[in-house]
Nucleic acid binder design. Structure first.
Length: 172
DNA sequence: AAAATACACAACCGCGCGAGC
DNA sequence: CGCTCGCGCGGTTGTGTATTT
């Protein structure tokens, strides 16, 4: 195994994030952007690994992240996408703006897995709903089949590019 | 009311890939 | 061309909460 250079074994904190840690990470990224996950936590005053920070940001702190219940339509998209894409959660996540791959994966394991197959999602809906839903799902599936997976624009990339080494100097 | 169990969500770990040197 | 590094992904585990006994 490799040992990431930026995050050596300096007693990194693990477990649930506190509000204070969230605030530190958010305010740092808002100010300086994302330039290097391995080094950022140090400058942000966090005793966390870069991986941990990245996960926290991607899944909960990033703007536009949707929290809370999945809609029926979102579940349908997940179920149907999984049939076509398998367990490629990140690819499935591109079909659901505002949802992270981790959240979708969790939702699958806790809710949707039990249903077994895509078809069972319809078990409580009336015939008309089923028809309409099937049309929507077919539309989504067609898109999946035709366009690889660039689908939704991701604004995270815009912030990660330009801000790099000068920050390190500024903060050192 | 307390203990046991099930459930849902948050976070970690290991690995592979691509870019840069 | 091989090596190192950082990032992202998917699987798995940990933890808190709700429900049942």
């Amino acid at each position: 195994m490799r040992t990431p250079s930026g995050e050596m074994s300096t007693s990194l904190k693990k477990g649930t994030w506190s509000l204070e840690e969230d605030q530190k990470l958010v305010s740092y990224i808002n100010r300086y952007g994302i330039w290097n996950w391995s080094l950022m936590p140090k400058y942000a005053g966090l005793s966390r690994s870069g991986k941990s920070c990245r996960l926290r940001w991607m899944n909960y702190l990033k703007p536009n992240i949707k929290r809370g219940n999945f809609s029926k339509e979102e579940e349908e998209i997940i179920l149907h996408s999984r049939v076509h894409l398998g367990n490629r959660w990140s690819a499935i996540a591109t079909r659901l703006p505002g949802r992270s791959d981790n959240e979708i994966k969790n939702h699958w394991h806790t809710h949707l897995k039990k249903r077994g197959t895509y078809n069972l999602v319809h078990q409580t809906t009336n015939p008309n709903d089923i028809k309409n839903t099937q049309q929507r799902v077919n539309h989504v599936t067609d898109n999946i089949a035709t366009q690889p997976s660039e689908a939704f624009e991701d604004d995270s990339s815009s912030s990660s590019s330009s801000i790099t080494p000068s920050i390190e100097q500024e903060l050192a």
